[in-house]
Design a protein around this nucleic acid. Structure first.
Length: 573
RNA sequence: CGGGGCGUGGCGCAGUCCGGUAGCGCACCUGCUUUGGGAGCAGGAAGUCGCAGGUUCAAAUCCUGUCGCCCCGACCA
């Protein structure tokens, strides 16, 4: 491919709206162009990379035994109603703007495909003899994201590989556990081949349902998730999921009696701790949730945050929602901000860290008053306790190794779904006793655009992108320094033709531009290998081969260049 | 959805406070020179100043409304 026959709109200037490096570089290198918030065109160069990512994903999915199919973006809303996900998805589920009762008003754009694939399974999988089976597609998803951001990292329309597996058993040969592991391994292979510094972590499964889940994270400041990792490397989890080792550090012994103090208008931890000259960690935060209309109270230390997922698990419920103020006022008899555990008549779950406190400060269920000198166990009963808080700096993993926190991008997610969707949609099969059972399911997603962006986040420098060979739009760029010099143009074109013949993706920069201009563009776009063909080199009888990542340059006779480059490309794939 | 910022040729911006001929840099076109690290000179094309109302002799500029984009937060299978 010749540069002058391609479309590569590079830019020296950085777009004002782009904040994260991958976004800035994707625009400057001419990979993408924004169409609207969360909606991007992939220009020829960017599309080549996306296709390479797609090819890797497809290869590894096929290797994992999954079968490719394609499902539509237009879904009947009835199927979503069957699984109860119209409410669960909320505004994320985009609907065609229909009027009245026409087909548009009953059609939604698929943000994921559990419903559609489960309907296929319901129709065609009737016997245990057909199981297990894994189906996947690489297809555009639509989601009404409230706030798209960071270029292609969070968009309303994106390319996703979604796979779904069906099983008769949870465990054993052909069971969900086996395929889950196969998929997990396939994901590791995919991200390794894309040269991403990924970390598999334990994750919350969220509204999609299911009981086990791992996310694949790429650490970068551009991310919007946090992972926590133990220093010894044995533990990694999404912050929302991370368990902590129970703390042992006790508060100083306190025999002080409970004492009421006037704290007019002071409802937050910060306000009260300032006013009473105590530290937030000496306070007990009383957070009131609602479960099926009943209050559920969580107690955590003032410097901790409740982890709602952990709370729900500890409470044995599927989810908790923060209580509205009327319920809080009814329960406590006070304004919001003055709730406390002493004398509170509700189900209370006490965080492990709170059980060690002595002489604590907390609300007293009376507007404008707090209490000091509260000893859990003495002044209120500890009926239920557990780990219900978010991990913080200083915490240790369950094995005692200190936790470190990293911002990251989620590039893949695997779930054990169980029978959530097959139950809801009556997707059953007959087992070997002729008995109807719900299909057991797993689902496995990868965001392809995010892989591209994450690769750029992980591999760039001041000059531009440093593409991994496997997903670079072209493996090699030939900078022909002056196409008007016949020896240069002849050799450059010869190398181009021979490399192409050898299966190397090569772009010939045949523009009538000065050398510096071509070098800057080559570095901005980040071709892994650059071959420089110039008058000066030819006088010495050499061409230069430069590695983008390291800047290392080797000089070689033109007749050896093709073999040398071909080997470099092969070695890096 | 709450808070903040911004909409002026393809891109980056000035001009808005204080109303009066739409401007600069990059990119683009033509010509000449130049060719190993984002060249120089000369000439040129390109903008309903987001949109809609209003005030005014006159609006990019003032007023009202509205739409869009970015950032922080909420939310996020």
């Amino acid at each position: 491919m010749k540069w002058t026959q391609f479309l590569i709109p590079t830019s020296k200037e950085c777009p004002a709206d782009a904040v994260v490096p991958s976004h800035q570089l994707m625009i400057r290198a001419g990979l993408v162009r924004q169409v609207a918030a969360g909606s991007y065109s992939y220009l020829p160069l960017g599309f080549r990379s996306l296709r390479k990512v797609e090819a890797i994903v497809r290869e590894e999915m096929n290797r994992a035994g999954a079968i490719e199919l394609n499902m539509p973006a237009l879904h009947p809303i009835e199927w979503w109603e069957q699984t109860g996900r119209v409410e669960a998805m909320g505004d994320v589920l985009l609907s065609l703007a229909g009027t009245g009762d026409d087909w548009r008003s009953r059609t939604v754009l698929g943000p994921t495909h559990e419903e559609v694939v489960t309907e296929i399974a319901r129709a065609y999988i009737n016997s245990y003899k057909q199981l297990p089976v894994s189906l996947y597609q690489i297809q555009t998803k639509f989601r009404g994201e409230a706030r798209p951001k960071s270029g292609v990292l969070r968009t309303r329309e994106f390319l996703m590989k979604d796979a779904y597996s069906f099983h008769s058993e949870l465990d054993g040969a052909g069971g969900l556990g086996e395929t889950y592991q196969t998929m997990y391994d396939a994901y590791c292979a995919i991200f390794s081949r894309c040269n991403l510094p990924y970390v598999p972590v334990e994750a919350e499964s969220g509204p999609i349902g299911g009981d086990a889940s791992h996310e694949f994270m790429v650490p970068t400041d551009a991310g919007e998730d946090y992972l926590v990792q133990s220093e010894d490397g044995s533990y990694a989890a999404n912050l929302e999921r991370a368990d902590v080792q129970p703390i042992t550090e006790k508060s100083a012994e306190s025999q002080a009696p409970v004492k009421e103090v006037h704290t007019p208008g002071l409802a937050t931890i910060d306000e009260v701790s300032d006013f009473l000259k105590c530290k937030p960690r000496q306070m007990i935060k009383t957070i009131i949730y609602e479960v099926n209309g009943e209050p559920l109270v969580a107690l955590v230390r003032g410097d901790h945050e409740v982890n709602e997922s952990k709370l729900a698990r500890t409470a044995g419920v599927s989810f908790v929602t923060p209580a509205e103020s009327p319920l809080i006022k009814k329960l406590t008899g006070a304004e919001v901000g003055f709730a406390g555990p002493v004398g509170l008549n509700a189900r209370v779950i006490v965080d492990q860290a709170v059980t060690l406190m002595q002489g604590a400060v907390t609300g007293t269920n009376k507007t404008d008053y707090h209490v000091t000198g509260v000893n859990p166990g003495r002044d209120f009963e500890i009926k239920e306790t557990g780990d219900i808080r978010m991990a913080v700096e200083g915490d240790c993993a369950p094995n005692g190794s200190p936790l470190v926190f990293k911002k990251c991008i989620e590039v893949g997610h695997v779930f054990k779904l169980g029978t959530k969707y097959s139950d809801a949609m009556q997707a059953t099969f007959l087992d070997n006793n002729g008995k109807a059972k719900s299909l057991i399911m797993g689902c496995y997603g990868i965001g392809l655009n995010r892989i591209m962006a994450a690769a750029i986040e992980a591999h760039h420098d001041e000059s531009g992108i440093c593409w991994p060979m496997t997903i670079a739009p072209f493996h090699v760029v030939i900078c022909a320094l002056d196409m008007r010099v016949e020896a240069v143009s002849t050799l450059a074109e010869k190398l181009h033709d021979e490399l192409t013949e050898a299966g190397v993706d090569v772009l010939l920069d045949d523009r009538d531009a000065r050398p510096g201009f071509k070098f800057k563009d080559a570095e901005l776009i980040g071709f892994p290998i650059r071959i420089t063909v110039g008058k000066r080199g030819l006088e010495e009888g050499i061409v230069e081969i430069q590695i983008r990542q390291t800047g290392d340059t080797v000089k070689t006779a033109p007749e050896n260049a093709v073999a040398t480059v071909q080997k470099m490309v092969q070695d890096a794939m």
